[in-house]
Simulated assay, not measured.
Amino acid sequence: MGVVNVTPDSFSDGGKWLDAPTAIQHGIDLVAEGADLVDVGGESTRPGAARIDGDEELRRVIPVIEGLVAEGITVSVDTMRASTAQQALDAGAVLINDVSGGRADSEMLGLAARTHAPIVLMHWREHSAVMQNHTHYDDLVDDIVRELMGQLNHAVLAGVDSGRIILDPGLGFSKTGAQNWTVLAHLDAFTELRHPLLVAASRKRFLGELLSDPSTGSGHAEIRPTDGRDDATAAITTLAAQAGAWCVRVHEPAASADAVRVVARLAQEAQ
């Protein structure tokens, strides 16, 4: 899943693809580099981000979705709003990627049920502005699995086809850097839920912290910039593929696509 952030303030590439023609071309380039689908979002969900209004989100994403669909590209929409998801589906998107797991908008699950659109339910506790105030867990992996299963059951009760639900453990959302590593070390706990698993680690801060440069002379380690985290992202893709993940969400698909091919080839030998 290649990322197209049509935003001025996303943590990695905010402002780079803000106008529709540039964003559409970027989506085309992502597919050429190996992306199977392109995830278009108009609202930043980085830690501390403030929400935008629905009209602005629509203004950003709908022309991009229409342009990518016209190029024959498979598109998902990254949104927490049912109204945006509906218009995105009308414009040709085929999947809803809701980082709130259906919790931010009470209409989202009903929309997924009515339209039969596949939906990603991510583990989520609170909106970006305050989510890092909610990182306490009694047992990290067990608590995330339990809360994610609660979101899943709520979706099924709302009429969403269980076979069209994808799960995401929500790396970086209400989780510290250390907690992200624990989640990654226990991806089997999520693949055992028997739903397709989306892993979204690309360029996130915990990778930058791991790759910090201690030799800056400033007395503290300099965190690796976002565009220097793609090799580490590809390493996470390898681990996710080995664990049986359905998809990874990445900013630079080429290395991750190669990593998936390597894991698939090794799996043939293990049969």
Results as ranks from 00 to 15, higher is better:
71 E>K: 11
71 E>D: 14
73 I>S: 04
75 V>Q: 03
75 V>W: 01
75 V>Y: 05
85 A>V: 03
85 A>M: 10
87 Q>E: 04
87 Q>V: 08
94 V>I: 08
95 L>F: 02
95 L>I: 00
96 I>H: 05
97 N>E: 00
98 D>H: 02
98 D>T: 06
99 V>I: 14
99 V>E: 06
99 V>P: 11
99 V>A: 10
100 S>D: 10
100 S>L: 14
103 R>Y: 10
104 A>W: 08
104 A>S: 09
106 S>W: 15
106 S>G: 12
106 S>E: 15
107 E>P: 12
108 M>G: 01
111 L>S: 10
111 L>W: 13
112 A>F: 13
112 A>M: 11
113 A>Q: 09
113 A>F: 13
115 T>Y: 12
116 H>E: 09
117 A>S: 04
117 A>G: 02
118 P>V: 03
118 P>W: 07
119 I>T: 08
119 I>E: 08
120 V>I: 13
120 V>T: 07
121 L>A: 14
124 W>I: 04
128 S>Q: 05
128 S>G: 09
128 S>R: 05
129 A>Q: 08
130 V>S: 15
131 M>N: 08
134 H>A: 12
134 H>F: 14
136 H>S: 11
136 H>E: 13
137 Y>C: 15
139 D>Y: 15
139 D>N: 15
139 D>M: 15
140 L>W: 14
140 L>C: 11
144 I>Y: 10
144 I>M: 11
145 V>E: 11
145 V>Q: 14
147 E>K: 00
148 L>H: 02
149 M>H: 15
149 M>G: 13
149 M>I: 15
150 G>C: 12
153 N>M: 13
153 N>V: 15
155 A>C: 03
155 A>N: 01
156 V>R: 08
157 L>Y: 14
158 A>V: 12
158 A>I: 09
159 G>P: 11
162 S>M: 13
164 R>N: 01
165 I>W: 11
168 D>T: 01
169 P>T: 04
170 G>V: 03
170 G>R: 07
172 G>Q: 05
173 F>E: 00
174 S>D: 02
174 S>A: 03
174 S>K: 11
175 K>D: 03
175 K>Y: 06
176 T>M: 12
176 T>V: 06
177 G>F: 13
177 G>S: 06
178 A>L: 15
181 W>N: 08
181 W>I: 04
182 T>E: 04
183 V>W: 02
185 A>F: 08
185 A>Y: 09
186 H>I: 13
186 H>M: 13
187 L>T: 07
190 F>V: 03
191 T>Y: 07
193 L>C: 06
193 L>W: 02
193 L>Y: 07
194 R>T: 08
194 R>I: 10
195 H>G: 07
196 P>L: 02
196 P>E: 00
197 L>N: 08
197 L>I: 13
198 L>V: 06
198 L>A: 04
199 V>R: 10
199 V>K: 04
200 A>C: 11
201 A>K: 06
202 S>R: 00
205 R>L: 13
205 R>W: 15
206 F>K: 00
206 F>Q: 04
206 F>G: 04
207 L>M: 12
208 G>P: 01
210 L>Y: 03
211 L>A: 07
